[in-house]
Structure formats: C-alpha cells, structure tokens
C-alpha cells in the first residue's frame, strides 16, 4: 500500500511515462551538466569562493546520480520503485530558471557597475589565516593584503616609498579628483551574496584616459596623501597596463 494513495494533494502518475517525468529527467541531467560546465570553464569563480568549489563537485555528482536514476525509470518504467508523483508544469518551470539564466546570460563577475559602497579598510583575519600580511613580500601583496597592512600599521608614514604591484579594476566616482582613481576588487567569503568592494587609492595624472571597470596592472610606490577627505596611503602610479580579467576575479578573505 502506498502512503500517498489517500492524500488528496498528490496525484498518482499513470503507469506510462508522463511528459513531466521526461522534463524532470532533462532538468536533473541538465543541471548536472551545467555544474560541470561551470566548473570546467572556470566561471565557477565568478560565483563562489574557490574554497567551496568541492561543494559544486558534490552538487554535480548528485544531480547526475538523480538524473541517471530518473532516466532509468523513464526508459524502464516496469522496474520503477514506488509510485511517481506527478509535478505541475509550474513547479518544473521554476526549477528551469537557474538553467535558463545560466545558459542564456553570459557569465560575468561583479564589476565596477555593481559597486554599491567601496571600502578602503579590511578587517584583519582573527583566526582564519595563519600568515600575517607582513610576511608577504610587498610586491606580492594584493589589494586585500595592502588594506590589512593599512589597518595594522600605527602610522601610515611607515609605508611611504614602499613599492606595490597590484591587479584590479579601475573604479572612480564623479566626486573623485581628476587625477585619482581606485584599484578595486571584490572580496567574496562564500559566494557573491556577501561580495563587498574594496580598493586602494591611486594617484595618476592620466586618470581620465582610463575606462571604468577596465582590468589593470599597476606598479608604483605609496605616499601618504589625501583621498576622499581622509589621510591614506595613496599609490603613486609609475606604470599601468591593461590586462585580461584574472582567473580569480574575487579575493578570498
């Protein structure tokens, strides 16, 4: 006897394979393939912290497992275990939304146009990382490492003359002086839901020639200066070149 038999809210599917059953199978396999494509093409890093990539492998595996089992039941209905619950087209189309968005909209990381509030400070990791940002060679520090250094030095003047080599996207607001911009990145702890924009202020006479959101590699040295009304270390740009968007567009705190 089936527990669903007497439940008015659930219909028993006919013994032959329903079109909904086919769509269900296609969606499960489709989502499995989508996860594999996202992992394979590297666009996974547009969405989540690389640290949690293994979760996407798990998801791909389970989707394919469920899809394969569903396909087996579609092809060999006589071997089906238990009764099929028919799903409405509405419920199925809702599940299709991520697949449709993921397939039709080109994958892009959050960039300059998604910056809501940009910060020039970053919390120092209490327990998360064992490596102090001071142990990193100044030329290997990224935007996040530098902001942590800003937060931990007693006096910004200590940083005067320190060289830096940074990759980020160009960010400026209408209120910025003509010769200033920010080398900006998004930090992502888990996924883009917690993305927040951070940036290192930069002084560059030819700032107007830069395009908002463009990825650049900037070399120069810090000098304490004024930025947005605050006293901050400002990177004096010595050289700047346009680069491709890095493989990992976000920094992971």
């Amino acid at each position: 006897m089936d527990i669903y038999q007497n439940i008015p809210g659930l219909n028993l599917a006919p013994q032959r394979t329903s079109p909904q059953m086919w769509l269900k199978t296609v969606l499960l396999l489709g989502l499995g393939v989508y996860f594999i494509v996202v992992i394979g093409t590297g666009s996974l890093t547009n969405y989540i912290n690389e640290r949690f990539a293994w979760l996407s492998y798990v998801a791909a595996g389970i989707f394919l497992l469920l899809g394969a089992h569903s396909l087996y039941m579609v092809l060999r209905p006589e071997h089906a275990v238990g009764k099929d619950r028919s799903l409405s087209w509405g419920a199925l189309s809702v599940i299709a939304i991520p697949l449709v968005l993921g397939t039709l909209v080109p994958s892009r990381p959050l960039g300059a146009e998604s910056v809501d509030r940009i910060s020039t400070s970053a919390a120092i990791n209490a327990a998360g990382s064992s490596i102090s940002q001071f142990e990193i060679d100044p030329l290997n520090r990224n935007v996040l490492d530098w902001l942590r250094v800003f937060n931990s030095v007693p006096d910004f003047a200590e940083l005067n003359g320190q060289p830096a080599d940074l990759i980020g996207f160009v960010y400026s607001e209408p209120t910025f002086p003509e010769d200033q911009f920010m080398i900006a990145r998004f930090t992502v702890s888990c996924c883009v839901a917690d993305a927040s924009a951070i940036g290192v202020p930069a002084f560059y006479a030819d700032t107007p020639t830069l395009t908002q959101g463009q990825w650049v590699r900037v070399q120069g040295a810090f000098q304490v200066g004024q930025f947005r009304g605050d006293v901050l270390p400002v990177l004096q740009v010595a050289s700047i070149e346009v680069v491709d968007q890095p493989e990992h567009p976000y920094l992971y705190p």
Binding site: N46, I48, F52, A59, P98, G102, L110, C191, A193
Partner: peptide, 11 residues
C-alpha cells in the same frame, strides 16, 4: 542580477 542569483543558487 544573473551573477547574484546564480551565486546563491550554486552555493
């Protein structure tokens, strides 16, 4: 929107 949506969904 798509990036933010898929970010949460994938996670």
């Amino acid at each position: 929107f798509s990036t933010r949506f898929l970010g949460i969904f994938i996670e």
